[in-house]
Lab assay of single mutants.
Amino acid sequence: DLSALRVEEVQNVINAMQKILECPICLELIKEPVSTKCDHIFCKFCMLKLLNQKKGPSQCPLCKNDITKRSLQESTRFSQLVEELLKIICAFQLDTGLEYANSYNFAKKENNSPEHLKDEVSIIQSMGYRNRAKRLLQSEPENPSLQETSLSVQLSNLGTVRTLRTKQRIQPQRTSVYIELGSDSSEDTVNKATYCSVGDQELLQITPQGTRDEISLDSAKKAACEFSETDVTNTEHHQPSNNDLNTTEKRAAERHPEKYQGSSVSNLHVEPCGTNTHASSLQHENSSLLLTKDRMNVEKAEF
């Protein structure tokens, strides 16, 4: 173990290094160091905050020279020094078990990766560091076993998940096959086929009936047209017969005018059967003409 005197000496050296690497504005270890034209180094955030307070150039807090945003430059070497100082402080805390008085939040800088452990060898070769390295080497064999167990647990979990997924996939297939086998029997399929065939026959029977009705309507229309044509021909046949009657009536009127007047009046009210309204109107006109002729003949006879 380190003596108290040596611990104090190391602590004083760390404090001196820390004062050199402090920012003059925030009085902390410089984060993202930036250098000016006057070779003074500050935190990048502190300098941008200072420049944004005034429009135009501002003055350096140490030498009062003008500073602009374009004049600022990043210093990589200074950032490396800060990183190495942080590593020294971490090693000091691990070796002594004491917390550094002016320690900052170094938890963000710590890294437990194997590459980081290899890099620590180049920091300080001390008894405390050696003991700590031995402890780490002793704890390393235990870690692979834990990793193997965790991997086995994960693989077993994956296997159970896969088996569950396969079961879920197989179950719908089985149910679907069961439904297909038990849903419709052979008799049901035959009945469905016969039902479809009967429906098709009914459709075939319905369509000819409609065509037959249309044919019957067409035949009825044709018969009505033929009947009207026969009526017209009958009226045409009746007209010459009426003319013959008129000639006979004229002759009778010349011989017996008194008797014919009474008979002509009675004939006005008689309509021949089986004739249309057109034929009756023609008869009325003929009878009126005959009456006028008879009157003329009677007057001539009187004179």
Rank of each mutant, 00 (worst) to 15 (best):
H284N: 09
E22S: 04
N191M: 09
N15M: 07
T233V: 13
L146W: 10
R174F: 09
G128D: 12
T68I: 03
L217T: 06
S288N: 10
G210M: 15
S126D: 12
I124Y: 14
P208L: 04
Q154T: 09
S71C: 02
Q205C: 03
K44Q: 04
L50K: 02
V161S: 09
Q18K: 05
I67G: 02
S264C: 12
K64N: 02
F45N: 15
M17I: 03
M17T: 00
C90M: 11
N157K: 11
I124V: 07
A279T: 11
S145A: 11
E187K: 03
E84P: 15
M17G: 00
N131S: 07
K69A: 11
V121Y: 07
Q168H: 10
P272V: 11
S281E: 08
D184E: 07
K31V: 07
L217W: 08
K293Q: 05
G56M: 10
E258Y: 09
K300E: 11
V7G: 00
N143K: 14
V10N: 00
G210Y: 11
D213R: 05
S58G: 13
V270C: 14
S79T: 14
E32D: 08
E140M: 03
E148H: 00
Q147K: 15
L136T: 11
Q205L: 04
L62T: 01
L164W: 14
S266R: 11
R130I: 11
T235S: 12
C90W: 12
E28V: 00
L204T: 05
C60P: 03
N246R: 07
I25G: 00
L29F: 08
Q59T: 02
T68D: 07
T233K: 09
Q138G: 11
E9V: 01
N131Y: 10
E28N: 02
Y100F: 12
Q11V: 13
N131L: 05
V121W: 09
S145F: 07
K259P: 01
I67T: 04
S156T: 10
I206K: 04
N15T: 08
G274S: 04
K134M: 01
N143E: 05
D66S: 08
K31S: 07
E142V: 08
L29I: 07
K167R: 07
P141I: 09
T149R: 14
V298F: 15
C60R: 00
M47K: 04
G262C: 08
C46P: 01
L203K: 10
Q209K: 09
R132T: 05
D39M: 10
L282S: 04
